[in-house]
């Protein structure tokens, strides 16, 4: 039977196919032989060469990407640190500047206070002296007024009524009048 099918299969060669050539079981052993050969060759090529190679390439790429990301993160961290250091330096410089300004202000204030005090003392001394002199002058003026009043009164009395020219009584009257 097998040989009959083989004959039938061989008979079709060169003719046009009728029905389904796929069902020509006579050439199945031939197909299976070449299929097995093909699959074995493919399996060896794929499992021995292709897959390990692609796997290593992919792993290498994965590693390279991971490495690059890690490096980028390190750089980013360094940048952040540098920024923080810069900010800190800036803040320090500001604080230092503030301190120096405050110190200078305090120094100036001190000097100013001393100068103000000295000036005030001098002014006070001068004004005391002036007051004393004013009082003296006032007193002098009052004394002069009394003397003039006495003299004037004596002269007037002498001129009007020479009999009554008693200098002592006149003086007493003038003094009493001035006091009154």
């Amino acid at each position: 039977m097998a040989s009959e099918q083989l004959m039938a299969g061989a008979g079709q060669i060169g003719e046009h196919a009728e029905g389904m050539p796929q069902l020509d079981f006579a050439n199945y052993p031939n197909q299976w032989f070449w299929l097995v050969v093909t699959l074995l060759v493919l399996y060896v090529v794929i499992s021995r060469i292709a897959l390990p190679r692609i796997a290593s390439v992919l792993a290498e790429r994965q590693g390279a990407i991971a490495r690059d990301i890690e490096q980028a993160e390190t750089l980013k961290r360094q940048a952040v640190e540098a920024e923080e250091a810069y900010k800190k330096a800036l803040a320090d410089a500001r604080a230092e500047a503030g301190r120096i300004v405050a110190e200078a202000k305090a120094d100036i204030q001190k000097e100013l206070d001393i100068a103000t005090e000295a000036a005030e003392a001098e002014i006070a001394a001068k004004s005391n002296e002036s007051e004393l002199r004013i009082a003296e002058i006032r007193k002098g003026a009052l004394d002069s007024i009394e003397a003039v009043a006495r003299d004037t009164a004596g002269e007037i009395v002498k001129a009007i009524m020479p009999v009554a020219a008693d200098q002592k009584a006149i003086d007493a009257a003038v003094t009493a009048k001035l006091k009154g």
């Binding site: 004959m7 061989a10 050539p21 032989f33």
Partner: peptide, 26 residues
């Protein structure tokens, strides 16, 4: 002849096939 393309033929010569004959499929 739509089914002609599915016929398995020996690559060389035009005689019968054995299990190891190189074919168009091979």
């Amino acid at each position: 002849f739509p089914m002609d393309q599915f016929v398995i033929r020996p690559l060389f010569g035009n005689h019968g096939m054995t299990w190891y004959t190189p074919t168009n499929q091979a």
